[in-house]
Design a protein around this nucleic acid. Structure first.
Length: 866
RNA sequence: GGGCGGUUAGCUCAGUUGGUAGAGUAUCACAUUGACAUUGUGGGGGUCGCUGGUUCGAGUCCAGUACCGCCCACCA
């Protein structure tokens, strides 16, 4: 860590500093939470990144926001725990390991379950530190000593308990239902893991001959290959076209099996032919129809997506892939002249979220969680405000999903995951659901594992020692305070944590859910490796510095939680700010002479009062906005205060006349305010400051608070007036191209007392030479400006073109006149005067008076110029 | 089909009790006056998607409409 103020580089070397500072924090164990502390708790659990993953911008944003909040709360006197960890990511991880095996020409079946799990564990163990290490480069102040993994022993214990309890309560059941089957993953997946894509397909109309009489019924389908699994043809009961056919039988072409024609409300008369083939084993809607009518289920496609060799399926198709079977079926139907019509048809096809393979809906025996009873409390607790979403609109989204929730298919035919704690008797087949195998000799455990989200759904409490409710962490830090995540996993994760948390701990697992937008590329497209439009946060951090990346990301978080369009260059914003802070601080530090920086409120200049007043106001607004998760707003205030107030004015003024106690006070407070956003930079500078410190690190210091004793409203306003005068003079200089090296004289009419106090400021910042106070100024050969109640005249004989000055003044006059006119008109409107609030009317009146006097002065100026 | 978001300066976006529009960036001019060129100073640039309504007054509230994006549902 830099200790010597004299040799600081003129540009901020972010990475060098950041690595050292992070190490300093880590070595001192400043991130470690103490469950025995008396301080009030603040806890937050990380959305566990996949163990397969590498840090992406989404993590960077998510992590930044979590760290900002954690650091802010820590500085506010809370015992803070930010708990890190990884998700075992069932399918994703298994995919990776299987791919590696495939390179050796092997499949998981070749090596067997035990060996496969051994390899996968090795792989997971070697990778799980990687992503958390990358989080460290973000400056994450999480407690790594508490890092967890969703497949570790503790989680496994929690998962088993939850499963067994839910089973015993009748909320988990096993049964044959239509599920979303991924033929590539060789597993069932849940409804929300199925994504629908619009595809251009066909609508085939096929004629099913009637039995025992002439004629046929024409059905429409997008999947002719499933016709062999048909168990009925359904029509709408009110459809007069088919009225007479209901109850009769028809014959499936090609195989000649007889099926009934039934009536069901579900059928849409206007779609296709109005007649629908019912295939309960391969379509969720048909499944429902089949159940209503007590029809049989004939499965014709297997788990590989191949046609099953059974008598109902045409022998030519046995073993064929579903798509090939489709082609063959069509050709056969054509040959038999029962293919009536082919239409182009756009429809939605379900895809596996993980591998994008087209889902095969099929009948399968799986485990499900009955969600409806669990959802009740989860709905209630959000409705009654016990759990609050920020921004609020996500509540609606959550509630809509919860209120229409369907059962959750939790079993996966994978090897990597929590094995379902159900045991089957080797001979009788009897099933026992229990925490332990009742008798390993005679019982064999179910081979299916649980959906990854089943264990992630327990994350806030399984990581705190639950089911041991007396564990210190659970007692101190559960429930957690805030959850920070993106909207894309509200259903997958947030909703499940809420339901499970309420069911098993009786309290909401967190009180606030802060939802941020998603990171997108410059064109607003989702970032993905396959598109090649990703920005690697690790590289951005190397290039711009971690603090720069953090500050930039935070600045892009809007109140509405809009998605963030990002490009690498945007980080220049944060980098420039970091460099500005570095240099301004360097200046302050290099110019300190005193040893005692005690602030003396009775000995302040007008500029000191102004900056203290500004800082105090900024503090108030920053805290207010932080409490309301408006990170972008906070960064704006920090940036504006430091750059536009502190650097542009106060530091400049301090070159004329400096108050070291105010300089150090303001810098110290600003660094603390900024610390959650730019932790390393602020820590480094703070460590260099020769002030009295109550803590060994800024990250442990107290967060500034608004304090009324710094309200210097009147002096501040006067100071602002002076700044306006300086700006006006600079403006005049600029418009007449007066070189900085040329000094000007000023004649000031009015506000003598004020300007007398700040003469030195005017001299330096407006490059003024002599300042004269006059009663009635001669303006010939001069430029002038009106500021408040005073007039400033700059004699510029030889330097200006009078015509230009008249033009300049006229332009100003026009502006003022336009404003005055519109305001006057408003005042003439009786209704306005009557109905607008008194305050507004008075303000308008005052502004008109102000404008009038300014206009008068300028008119006088123009008159005397010409 | 249902729901949600967006449309404001060339670009990226702020603007939450309705009181005549802001930032960053880009651009133009000037400047190397010892914290900083990752800089300083000054300037130009917007009828706030469109139409109507409420109101003394609308970027802000209401209704409708167009376009872009997202989510849910899944009529085979």
């Amino acid at each position: 860590m830099q200790k010597d103020v004299k040799n600081l580089s003129t540009t901020y070397n972010a990475r060098e500093v950041e690595k050292e500072i992070y190490k300093f924090w880590e070595d001192n164990e400043f991130f470690k939470a103490n469950s025995q502390s008396d301080k009030p708790p603040f806890s937050i659990v990380i959305p566990p990144p996949n163990v397969t993953g590498i840090l992406h911008m989404g993590h960077a944003l998510d992590g930044t926001l979590q760290d900002i909040l954690t650091r802010y709360k820590r500085m506010n006197g809370f015992e803070t725990l930010w708990l890190p960890g990884c998700d075992h990511a069932g399918i994703a991880t298994q995919n990776v390991v299987e791919k590696n095996l495939a390179k050796e020409g092997k499949t998981r079946h070749d090596i067997g379950r035990e060996e496969f799990l051994k390899i996968t564990w090795e792989w997971a163990n070697s990778h799980k530190t990687k992503i958390l290490d990358q989080f460290k480069t973000l400056g994450a102040s999480f407690d790594l000593s508490r890092a967890r993994f969703t497949l570790d022993e503790g989680c496994s214990k929690a998962v088993k308990k939850v499963f067994v309890d839910l089973y015993n309560k009748g909320l988990i059941y096993k049964g044959s239902y239509i599920v979303n089957w991924c033929p590539r993953c060789q597993s069932a997946i849940s409804d929300i893991e199925t994504e629908y894509e619009t595809e251009q397909g066909h609508l085939w109309e096929i004629s099913y001959p009637l039995k025992d009489e002439m004629g046929a019924i024409v059905i429409a389908t997008t999947r002719p290959e499933t016709m062999f699994g048909d168990v009925a043809v359904a029509v709408n009961p009110t459809d007069y076209k088919y009225k007479d056919l209901i109850g009769k039988k028809c014959v499936i072409p090609l195989t000649g099996r007889e099926i009934p024609i039934i009536a069901d409300e579900y059928v849409d008369k206007s779609f296709g032919t109005g007649a629908l083939k019912i295939t309960p084993a391969h379509d969720p809607n048909d499944f429902e129809v089949g159940r209503r009518h007590k029809l049989p289920f004939i499965k014709v496609i297997d788990e590989q997506g191949k046609m099953i060799a059974r008598s109902e399926v045409h022998p030519e198709l046995h073993g064929l892939d579903r798509y090939e079977a489709r082609e063959r079926t069509i050709r056969m139907l054509e040959a038999h002249q029962v293919l009536v019509k082919i239409d182009e048809h756009e429809h939605n096809v379900g895809k596996c979220q993980r591998c994008n393979t087209t889902i095969e809906p099929l009948l399968s025996e799986q485990w499900f969680v009955k969600m409806e009873p669990l959802a009740k409390a989860a709905i209630e607790k959000v409705k009654d405000g016990s759990i609050k979403f920020v921004p609020k609109r996500w509540e609606k989204n959550y509630l809509m999903w919860m209120e229409n929730i369907r059962d959750w298919c939790i079993s996966r035919q994978l090897w990597w995951g929590h094995q379902i704690p159900a045991y089957h008797h080797n001979e009788t087949g009897e099933m026992v659901v229990a925490l332990e195998n009742p008798d390993p000799k005679n019982y064999t455990q179910e081979t299916d594992v649980l959906d990854t989200w089943f264990s992630s759904g327990l994350w806030p409490f399984e990581t705190m020692g639950w089911p041991d409710v007396n564990s210190p962490d659970f007692k101190k830090f559960y429930p957690t305070t805030t959850l920070i995540t993106g909207f894309d996993i509200i259903f997958f994760w947030v909703a499940r944590m809420i339901t499970m948390g309420l069911e098993f701990t009786k309290v909401p697992p967190f009180s606030t859910v802060y939802i941020h937008g998603l990171i997108r590329d410059e064109l607003g497209q989702k970032m993905s490796k396959s598109k090649g439009n990703t920005i690697d946060p690790v590289l951005s951090i190397e290039k711009y510095g971690c603090d720069a990346v953090r500050f930039t990301l935070a600045s892009m978080c809007t109140y509405g939680g809009q998605d963030i369009k990002l490009s690498d260059e945007k980080f220049e914003f944060g980098r420039n700010f970091a460099n500005k802070i570095w240099n301004a601080s360097r200046f302050v530090l290099m110019n300190l002479e005193n040893k005692d920086f005690e602030l003396d409120l009775n000995n302040l200049s007008i500029a000191d009062k102004w900056i203290l007043n500004k800082l105090n106001k900024a503090t108030y607004e920053i805290v207010e906005n932080l409490e309301n998760y408006r990170m972008g707003e906070v960064t704006n205030i920090l940036y504006d205060f430091f750059w536009n107030s502190f650097c542009d004015w106060y530091v400049e003024l301090s070159k004329i006349e400096k108050n070291e106690s105010v300089l150090t006070f303001v810098l110290d407070r600003f660094l603390r305010l900024l610390h959650p956003f730019m932790p390393h930079l602020t820590e480094q500078i703070w460590q260099l400051m020769p002030i009295k410190k109550e803590t060994p690190a800024i990250m442990l210091s107290s967060y500034p608070k608004y304090d009324e004793k710094f309200n210097f409203e009147e002096d501040s306003n006067a100071m602002e007036l002076v700044f306006e005068a300086i700006r006006s003079i600079r403006n005049i200089r600029s418009s007449f191209n007066i070189a900085p090296s040329i000094k000007v004289n000023l004649k000031i009419q009015g506000e003598k007392e004020l300007y007398k106090k700040v003469e030195s400021y005017l001299k330096r910042l407006a490059r003024a030479e002599n300042i004269e106070y006059v009663e009635n100024a001669e303006v010939k050969q001069s430029a002038s400006t009106v500021v408040g109640n005073s007039k400033i005249i700059i004699p510029l004989a030889g330097l200006i073109d009078i015509k230009e000055e008249i033009q300049r003044q006229n332009k100003k006059l026009l502006k003022l006149n336009t404003e005055k006119e519109s305001l006057s008109q408003r005042m003439m409107n009786e209704k306005f005067v009557k109905s607008a609030p008194l305050e507004v009317v008075q303000k308008t009146k005052a502004r008109i008076e102000e404008l009038s006097s300014e206009i008068e002065v300028i008119e006088g100026l123009i008159k005397s110029l010409s």
